[in-house]
Design a protein around this nucleic acid. Sequence first.
DNA 1: CAACTAAACGTACGACCGTTCGTGCTTTTG
DNA 2: CAAAAGCACGAACGGTCGTACGTTTAGTTG
Lengths: 214, 214
Amino acid sequence: MSPSPPRATTDQRLLRGARARWTIARHGADVASAEGLSGLSIGRLATDLGLSKSGVATLFGTKEQLQLAVVEAARKAYVDAVVRPALAHPAGAARLRALVDGWFGYAEQPLFPGGCFWAANLPDFDSRPGPVRDALRAQRGEWLTLLADQIRRAVDDTADDAPTTGAAGELDPELTAFHLDAVFVGTNTALRLGDPNALPRTRRIIENLLAPIT
Amino acid sequence: MSPSPPRATTDQRLLRGARARWTIARHGADVASAEGLSGLSIGRLATDLGLSKSGVATLFGTKEQLQLAVVEAARKAYVDAVVRPALAHPAGAARLRALVDGWFGYAEQPLFPGGCFWAANLPDFDSRPGPVRDALRAQRGEWLTLLADQIRRAVDDTADDAPTTGAAGELDPELTAFHLDAVFVGTNTALRLGDPNALPRTRRIIENLLAPIT
DNA sequence: CAACTAAACGTACGACCGTTCGTGCTTTTG
DNA sequence: CAAAAGCACGAACGGTCGTACGTTTAGTTG
């Protein structure tokens, strides 16, 4: 009676297609980090990967669907590189610290050659209504929620230790998550522009910002 | 003996050209704030303004020179709207406060329809070496220097009032200017994405950030 | 007045864009 | 084994891009 769960298909045609789509989308994320999602072109991706333009076009159908696939590929890559390792640490201050450290690694040894994918593409699409903007906004929301959850947990833990005197209560989780992310994005821009002080400067800012809960 | 200073020409042909270049570049800044400098097209600007494509092309010669003119037009508009009014206040905390207030006005009642011109275009060009990137980077540097100078002055003034006990000495001017700008840019993104809490949230952050010198 | 300059235009060029169509080829399905 | 499905391709389409050339018109300069 129960409908079979969405099983992983063994159809080698579909597997081949999925593999190709992933390769193309992942490379598209690299390109888009440097030149923007709107600057992406099907022909460019095809020649980069030694494929035919029409082959790439058929796999995605539409440029917008290609862009959506690229956005999703970027998300997966970021989760693998930064988020998943941090989930090994206990929720709260420790996981938050792991996320921050992970982000520094992400910025120092760029996962995408053009730097942060979202710092590059949110400004590109934040004034263009449509599915791509919606997807990017949703991903940003997930990231901010992830940060805010860890901050909230860390604040609660700190309050337990010193119920009445802690300054941690001053930290609004949602506000601090936004604040943290803004500093990250600004750091990415400074790095892109060749500012050698970008990383140590940001370390100081963030240490100060999170001092009440660490 | 002294070479005549660069007099303002009265040649009406040149005046006409300069006027046309300004009109086009200023409109280009509006377009670029929403769709990016790289998305700008000569034909688009021409039809927007009821001109011929070749006319626009001849006035600027090259797309890159058009982009540089647009960047300069954006700068002038921003100086008129935000910087110059603040210069009426005395250097230091007062001028800094005026700059912050001016920026809130700039964000609340957008000078450019796509939001902050630099928040939109620095990420677009920060990975593309060339004159346009250089110009944008230089403008960002001027802005950060302007902020840092006011912070430094405010810190010095505060230190005079309470030579030994002030917490204002903790504020590194350069670092705080970067910090302030990062929050501005993050706020612009949040506004663009329709976050209704963006402005009050940022007001809280900045009040807190500048508390030691106000 | 004649020579010159700059703005503005129409036209045309080659390059690239996204998309569509028709065609092989491999793999799965009935 | 035949039919269907999905990937990959070459070719071609209409459209836009940046740029270049030649011409006309308005304004300046000798």
